[in-house]
Nucleic acid binder design. Structure first.
Lengths: 151, 151
DNA sequence: GCATCTTTGCAATTTTATTGCATGCTGGAC
DNA sequence: GTCCAGCATGCAATAAAATTGCAAAGATGC
């Protein structure tokens, strides 16, 4: 993982649709060397995957929300069980166990409030292990970056 | 945006590194038709970009945190100012204005607690418009999906 | 039902990725 | 400092993939 690898990763994190020749030129390598480095980074698992990022507005998922969740029964197996339940939901894009006043935090992508309502019923009502939850609807997003900063 | 477009988008959201011929076969189209659809989806902005998703652990950003922020002065211009400040930070991967008990929420990717400490000083200390903030360190991530669910 | 505009598949062409191989560089042992 | 082993590199050839023109099929509006 030298300087060139980091440059390549940064390029790929911004736009992975460019040709190998372009990126080779960008980092000052021959196409073959560049390709072999990228392949190595993939096989080593540094690059997890290459994906298309959609425009949420044009894909019909306009609403975004963050939900913090306090569980009734805390501790590992209970938290895990709740997270697994949440992870199965399409609208849940991220599900984390966290430190602090709450036990878990969910990021949602919703079509409308109807979907939110239905989701709440499935995840937070009676039978589940949820004591309380707080929903924050996203008003405006100033930054939304998939790239991980490399030193 | 018919069934085939949605299938293509779903394929691309999971793995955009496959060949056009493979995806054409997957959705039952000829390579040329498939390519033209994908190009159209890109030009229409439905596909925003194609990016590499790195493995955070192997890229040296092991810590993840969610920070909720209550501002001293609420309202549009103040919120915007804070978000813009936060967005300029490398470690901030997401910055949202939200409804609820707090005004903003930040998602962080950190190398270590030292970086967290430095970030807090820059974003939350004295001169800034922050009244209080609550940090939730991510213990475990059960789901972390970039794909947007398409009906 | 007809004319028009769009999408499709095929085949040819162009571009891009991939590989073998010889060379050069790097770091460690002595 | 010198030698050696192990990699990374660039070049050129090859294989694979993307891209385009064109004619036919399909959808849309009147």
């Amino acid at each position: 993982m030298d300087r060139i690898d980091r440059e390549l990763l940064n390029l790929l994190q911004r736009d992975a649709s460019r040709t190998n020749a372009y990126m080779a030129d960008e980092v000052g390598l021959s196409p073959s060397s560049c390709l072999r480095r990228i392949r190595r980074l993939r096989q080593a698992g540094v690059i997890d995957r290459i994906v298309a990022i959609l425009n949420p507005a044009k894909a019909g998922r306009r609403l975004r929300a963050v939900v913090t969740v306090e569980l009734r029964l805390h501790g590992e197996p209970n938290t895990r069980q709740f997270l697994d339940l949440a992870a199965r939901e399409e609208a849940v894009t991220q599900a984390h166990a966290v430190t602090g006043e709450v036990d878990a935090i969910l990021m949602l992508r919703l079509r409308d409030m109807e979907e939110y309502d239905a989701l709440c019923h499935r995840l937070f009502q009676n039978r589940t292990n949820v004591a309380r939850y707080w929903t924050m609807m996203v008003i405006r997003t100033a930054k939304d970056e998939t790239a991980i900063p490399l030193e």
